[in-house]
Amino acid sequence: MRVLVKGAGVAGLTAAFELAARGAAVTVVETRHCLGGNASWMAGGMLAPWCERESAEQPVLDLGRDAADWWDAALPGHVTRAGTLVVAMPRDAGELDRFASRTSGYQWVDEDEITLLEPDLAGRFHRGLFFPGEAHLDPRRAMAALHEKLAERGVEFRFGIDARHVAGFEYEIDCTGMAAGDERLRGVRGEMVILCAPDVSLARPVRLLHPRFSLYLAPRADHHFMAGATMIESRSAEPITGRSMMELLNAAYSVHPAFGEAAIVETGVGIRPAYPDNLPRVERQGRTVAINGLYRHGFLLAPAMAQRAADLVFRSDKPAEYADETDSQRRSA
């Protein structure tokens, strides 16, 4: 079966992977000239469904629970399974209790246990939450590796191409996010900063809770850290604002003062496509399957969405619409 995947973000790449694995002849078209420049490129890469449950609904946990396994199997060596550490400054200790009351899959850790997990945070936090089942990856490396692996397996990539100019496919998978033009979608702007702090080492993503400016620091190679991410109801892709930058840097500095000496390597803005319920959808219309609305959970939810899209392509006799399924899950949540 010849399948066209439109869009080379995390949704498109994972869909191509699932389809190719099931024997489809896959072509990926991307209007940009290379990987990147999309929301996935700006992602944190946290595979943290238990933490996300703090504000996300149950389907995000259900659909994201196996994401780390999927990525580990697809790209051995890329996934770090070291959990997530959640901390708060002493005066915001109530935020930890609130976070704990909304989530599961954690254990409380005291100052000594935090030191064992993250020696660089010794003495900085008295109490925290540790989510041992969570994982993280570097989104850009993962996307590049997935691209390479797919190309090796015979998936054709055509960059800088408008999908309207290609034809001859039995199925189309639309993974173009905001560009899909779905009227129900809105953009949620996320701003991030990449810092290089040679004096800091973290083994896992650290989330700092604050009543107003929550932040996560996702460790990357060579003492690089991504600090993110704001959530603004806007599809403006203008550069990061002073206020957001200040909030992110302030929060990073509160986690460790050495971030005050960090080099600001990059700032970025991504526009996350979201449906009104902030839950993803896989929908089939004729010979087109659309994956969209991954919101702030691209790397976490893309594998499950890709599997569902492939199910729809390969079991086209089955009229299952997974959007309905996630809808009913939401209502019962």
């Binding site: 806007s234 403006s236 009104p276």
Partner: peptide, 30 residues
């Protein structure tokens, strides 16, 4: 709110007749 859909349901359940919205500057421009 966790999502605009939950916001809409909450507003209905509250029977509020006025909603406040905050305008951040970067949201207004374009």
């Amino acid at each position: 709110y966790p999502s605009p859909a939950i916001l809409a349901d909450a507003v209905k359940a509250s029977r509020a007749s006025v909603v406040t919205v905050s305008l951040r500057r970067e949201m207004a421009g374009g």
